[in-house]
Nucleic acid binder design. Structure first.
Lengths: 188, 188
DNA sequence: ACCTGTTATTGACTTTTGTCAAGATTCCGG
DNA sequence: CCGGAATCTTGACAAAAGTCAATAACAGGT
């Protein structure tokens, strides 16, 4: 996690130590709910190992908004920043090792080390850009284009996630994804 | 614009004055291109009056990514922050009055007035949340749901924008939007 | 290893949306 | 105020995706 932050913006050793001092490394088994809809997101967790998803309920089914794998920071960004209840639930999909920072500790780090604000800003920008990329994908018209968009960006993720969840993420239903997949495999 | 910033986070009078000193108020006629794809976004412009859109080219047609009306801040956020070329073009749709701040002036304000960072962070969060809302809309399955999502959130915008542009924004084609609209009017 | 329940695939059919084209309407510049 | 161009609407048809249902494959727990 320290390496990742450093890659966003170089940090002095004292800042690195201060982060290490407040970060909590934990293991979470599959199916752990890290955050429930309606709660306020108090932690930002760097994914050392494992996989999670954020989803919301639409009618009777769960719609996955995004997947978070190694190198990703798990949090409900909006809730974390605005201190308002989250509109989504975050669930661990694969046994995970996470390095978590509490909101208050991060605020303290911002206050004590001004350069940490730049790290925070860069991280926000990056996750903002990922959000925009998802919109780009969703505006694609055909299932085939959406499928390609996903496989090109996350070639390894396909094997790790159930098709039902990928389908809701892509804005299509399970059967359509299955058929699109079969068609694509035939082509190659 | 000052009022809007104040509503995000209260600002001392000196900061207000400093903003007023560097802000440039300008009128832009319809069809002005504020930013071209490939350029770096150097300004953040508060919309006092008027309307603009950001679009990108997909194949042979222009896909509108978002509309920006009164109270909105026009900029290609990602380009503005990362100092990388923008992937989109921004065009004025209705004669507009804009209060513009240059990137360098904003950086100076951040440095001189720490509380301005909070204003900037809140603004980013807000536009991040709007981006997420657009994803929410795009994952709706039927044209009817997308149409309702748009009319509920932007009841006045429908009359001001060509249907072709609204259609690409919603991820459907012109004819589908026209038919959906006709069906909705009949119902009410 | 076996049972059970979830997940994935496939088929037949319906609904929705896209495509192409023609006609109507609106808008704008001269 | 007129004419041309863009925009919007409507229709007929094609293509794509959704729905329902049945079967197959897989995974987790005992």
């Amino acid at each position: 996690m320290i390496d990742y932050f450093n890659s966003l913006h170089p940090m002095p050793p004292e800042l690195c130590n201060a982060i290490a001092a407040v970060a909590e490394l934990h293991d979470y088994p599959k199916k752990t709910i890290l955050l429930k809809e309606g709660q306020i997101s108090n932690h930002a967790c760097f994914v050392v190992k494992g996989l999670a998803r954020a989803f919301y309920n639409s009618g009777d089914k769960e719609v996955t908004r995004l997947f978070m794998d190694e190198g990703y920071i798990i949090t409900s960004w909006l809730s974390f920043y605005t201190r308002q209840p989250a509109h989504e639930t975050i669930e661990i999909l694969e046994d995970a090792t996470l390095a978590c920072l509490h909101h208050d500790d991060i605020e303290n780090l911002y206050a004590e080390f001004p350069e940490f604000n730049i790290v925070g800003k860069k991280a926000t920008e990056y996750f903002f850009s990922l959000s925009e990329q998802r919109s780009l994908m969703l505006r694609k018209h055909t299932a085939e284009e959406k499928y390609l968009f996903f496989t090109e960006r996350h070639p390894t993720l396909f094997q790790r996630i159930s098709q039902k969840q990928i389908a809701t993420f892509l804005g299509m239903n399970e059967e359509t994804l299955s058929r699109t997949r079969a068609k694509m495999l035939k082509k190659s």
